[in-house]
Design a binder for these strands. Structure first.
Lengths: 180, 180, 180, 180
DNA sequence: AATGAATGAGATTTCATTCAT
DNA sequence: TATGAATGAAATCTCATTCAT
């Protein structure tokens, strides 16, 4: 199976990228850590950046799937949705901290889409449920940035706040809960 | 104060770092772009990372000075302070976009301090002016992340929102304005 | 006679060698182009150079056979022999251009034998039919070089001259027709 | 001076290319033979092929210059011109055999121009001095091929013919001396 | 015989750093 | 201070070859 070595390489790279930073890791190290030959690295990935990108995209995708499930899992009530969404993201960050870091370290150059949140904000504004002075695009981006920024910071040292404090703070700062 | 060569190198590096990313730029390129010899680079900086760090620190410092002036420039009323602060940061980002990018691209690895905001939030909570359910450390970090994230995103394509929309959104999402 | 896979490999290699040059083609590419596995390549040939050599030798041999038939097919009259020989070589180049290229690209490192022509020139000189100032070995080599050089050049762009022009020119420059 | 190392590299490469063939020589070997560091190789040439090409072009150019001088050095009488030209080429091949080999090994992929000879043949045909049945383009290419082919063959083993025999044979096979 | 993923020796290439000028 | 050619350690990448299936 082609997947065997590729998996090993992806896992090894995740560990190394998080531990030392993408730029301080090289293809030989990744191959060695994965327990495969250098050639195998290049048989599966064009270069280190392609591997990195596939790691980021896969992590973002896994996160997206979890968030979508969370959204679908309960009532449309905005507060409950925000709570379920933030809960899903925190759970992901806790369960797979390295994948979460990979996805967001580097400032999210690979674009975490905020279209969904933006659309939802617009709807809530039309319903009169959300402050019309918020610019939906900006607010959506703001929440994405704060969420990833806070969680990276929290994962760095979980004693910075309890899970509940972090959760509650993110929820309460969510633009969808900003009443008019 | 630096010599003329050092200034040229700092400017060249800023341009190149922003255009291609820190890791895709090397000392020879910086020297060439600056119009000085490679040797001159090493006469002024230990290496690329020292130069980068001094660029980031200087940008963060310049920003800090502007924010402090803005804070000191008017009444202690929280909303007015938030407005003056956000205004100062946006003005800096507009006037010196490359310096702003340098400071925050890379996810702010050099730690933008959020101690001041955290302390102020705590005071406002004690006064009963701010939602006690917000965790001050987390909320301060959240605002820092959203502000830098939004402004980098906005600088990338200013047509994403008007200045006023971006401003108003950041202000309204500031935790200090989150009533109990 | 070779198996089917060997044939496919020879054909694929001919195409690739001519298109990209021997040194820019590797065994994996040949196998892929042939539609067989890499392992199959090594089941049939020791390496790329053995395959190349067998291609060259086989092409030179096929050409030799055609020329010998042409020589035997008519009168010993020098001009007619030269005409039949050149005709045979041009026909071969037209019918199997890639085989012809393979045989002579690379400057004919595998030695196209000129012994026959050399011997014939010597005879004709002894008969007084050919200029005695020509050195038979050199003249034979000269003709071989001009013939392969001209035909490679012509195959590259057949609009460089009509078939008849190329034919007539080669015939007339043949040392055997150089009267004393 | 930038030329110092570049010269050493060009000389070393000439020696190695001729001794072992372009494809069996690598950049490390060239640098070592030249007595410079590997980095120096890449400071002067993009890669091995650029170096090779500059070697070929420079050799062809040096040869062209000699031939032009030879042509200008005496009467326009076709036979004398052919003699002086062939003499110049043989002298070059004798004096700088490695440069000559570099220029023509590989089948002259870099295009030795035959325009001059072609034009001259056309003129001589118009004057009625040369066989009109020769196609000038083909004949010019034929002579270029025979000359380089013969001289490479002769340099390989100078005992294959005396200098005078080789000279006289090339002269007599020159299309410009082919009477109508 | 056929396969193709895996291998690693070795070739290519980069770049931080030095140093003679 | 300034220069930039030179350097070589280290990184990137290729490819002939093997071998388990």
């Amino acid at each position: 199976m082609s997947t065997e070595s590729a998996e090993k390489l992806l896992d090894a790279a995740t560990r190394l990228f998080v531990a030392h930073g993408i730029e301080r890791v090289n293809s030989n190290q990744i191959a060695r850590e994965a327990g495969v030959g250098v050639g195998t690295f290049y048989a599966h990935f064009k270069d280190k950046h392609e591997l990195h990108q596939s790691l980021v995209l896969s992590a973002l995708d896994a996160l997206r799937v979890r968030v979508e499930k969370a959204v679908a899992a309960g009532p449309a009530d905005p507060e409950q949705q925000v709570r379920r969404t933030v809960e899903a993201v925190i759970a992901f960050a806790e369960e797979q901290p390295d994948r979460f870091r990979i996805a967001f370290l580097g400032g999210g150059r690979f674009g975490y889409s905020t279209r969904g949140v933006e659309r939802r904000l617009r709807e809530l504004q039309e319903e009169g449920a959300v402050d019309r002075a918020l610019h939906p695009g900006t607010a959506a981006r703001a929440f994405a940035s704060m969420q990833s920024g806070v969680l990276l910071w929290w994962l760095e040292d979980p004693s910075r706040g309890s899970r509940a404090e972090v959760f509650e703070t993110l929820v309460r700062l969510h633009p969808a809960l900003r009443r008019p």
